[in-house]
Simulated scan of single mutants.
Amino acid sequence: MTHRVVLPVFDGVQPLDVVGPHEVLRIATHFCRAAGRPGGYTVELVGERPGPVRSETGLALVAEGPLPAGPIGTLLVPGGGGAREQPVGGGIVPWVREIAPHAERIVSVCTGAFVLAAAGLLDGCPATTHWRWTGRLAAEHPAVDVQPDAIWVRHGRIWSSAGVTAGMDLALALVEEDLGADIAQAVARELVLPVRRAGGQSQYASPVWAPPAPRPSVREAQDLIHADPAADLRVPLLAGRVGMSERHFGREFTRLVGTPPGVYVERVRVEAARGMLEAGDLTVTAVAARCGFGSAETMRRAFLRRLGVAPDHYRRRFTTTSRAGGLTGR
């Protein structure tokens, strides 16, 4: 069976949200046909009106036809600035709401989740979007169970992916479900991609720390943590340093910063270790000691909790370009 994918494009679309999944599905179709197997995909770029649309990078994409009616296979909604600003009752949102009951599967890439949310399709569902916009999605659509660290999420027939290139991860997952693991593996090899990416969005996004707390004593504790992550930062000692009882300090820090002090310390230490692993040649054990973890095993558990990957795997994936044998500026 050939799977029909309908992909709406609009002014302000992110072009890679369109081209990335399109390429995954095109190559999957090629491998199916080369193997003499039935299946594959037809991908239709559609728009409010046929013709060119201007992406948010200035690249022109062409809607080959109007927004269709009737049953479709997969509705794949890309993101971009034009998706985030789609009004609830305007743009392609009414069409998405109308066509949704007639789609076998509904997919969003990156901030295409804002379109699905505006259409009411994500209420009560787990979903994700680009890490930079997860907070806004949760604030504007509180009925959505936003998963900020997921690369992609499936809930029944509704799928959503994280930012930009994560749309290719999601497309590979669609291929694996529709055409089998062997075709997905072949496509991944062709595109030099992992079939399943290790870890979540947090391994790619620089953490956004809480702003300095308005209370001076709590702000002082934050400064102490950032100034020397390797120091003894146990909660009783931090509380004593800023002249508060342990119980009151823990309560106030959590209220003003949004996370308990022990969790905050671990986040800062993980970020410090990330930088050392990316830029230097220290052993994992040495990095753990310099960042206050005490042991490599403690740091490994923290990395798995926060980033979904072990420190040695993180280093192999995110080592600096010059150390990894890539091009330098020389």
Rank of each mutant, 00 (worst) to 15 (best):
R196F: 03
E56S: 13
C32I: 00
P94N: 04
H313C: 13
A28D: 09
A310Y: 13
A227H: 04
S108C: 03
A118E: 04
G163L: 11
R154M: 00
A150M: 03
R33K: 13
Y41I: 06
V77W: 04
A205V: 12
E246H: 14
V192F: 05
A181T: 11
R306Q: 05
R274M: 11
G40M: 13
V187K: 03
H141R: 04
E140G: 03
L191F: 08
T321A: 14
T74E: 01
P236V: 02
C125K: 14
V53I: 12
T57M: 15
L304T: 10
P207D: 15
L67F: 11
Q203Y: 11
V263Q: 09
Y314L: 12
L67T: 02
H155D: 04
R105C: 01
A171Y: 01
D17E: 00
G89H: 11
G40T: 12
M244E: 13
S217Q: 09
L59Q: 15
G12D: 15
T165D: 00
V77K: 10
T42I: 01
G326Y: 12
G199M: 05
G280H: 06
A150K: 03
E56L: 15
L170N: 08
A35L: 12
R305N: 05
R157G: 08
H313R: 15
A100Q: 07
R157D: 09
V19I: 13
P68T: 02
E266M: 01
R234L: 10
G135T: 14
P148M: 06
A100H: 08
T285D: 09
D17T: 03
A34W: 11
V187A: 11
P216V: 14
L67R: 02
R301S: 07
P260Q: 04
G82H: 04
T2R: 07
P194M: 15
G294F: 06
G20P: 01
I106D: 03
D312L: 08
T57R: 15
E23G: 12
A34C: 14
G89P: 08
L238S: 07
P207H: 10
H226L: 13
R105V: 09
E64V: 01
P212N: 11
S55A: 12
V144Q: 13
V62H: 12
P50A: 14
F253W: 03
V164T: 03
T165H: 04
M276Q: 07
A239G: 10
R300M: 03
D223W: 15
G20C: 08
V53A: 08
W131P: 15
M244Q: 12
L75A: 07
R269E: 05
P194R: 07
E64C: 07
P261C: 15
A302N: 01
L59A: 15
W131A: 05
L45W: 02
A221S: 15
Q222K: 14
A150C: 04
G20A: 07
V153H: 06
G325M: 05
L7E: 10
M244R: 02
D312R: 11
A100K: 14
L45R: 02
A210Q: 07
A162S: 01
R84Y: 03
I72S: 14
L304H: 10
P214H: 11
A83Y: 12
R105K: 09
F293W: 08
H102V: 01
G280V: 12
P229F: 03
L116E: 08
G65K: 02
H141E: 02
Y314A: 08
L121R: 02
Y314D: 01
A166W: 00
P126N: 02
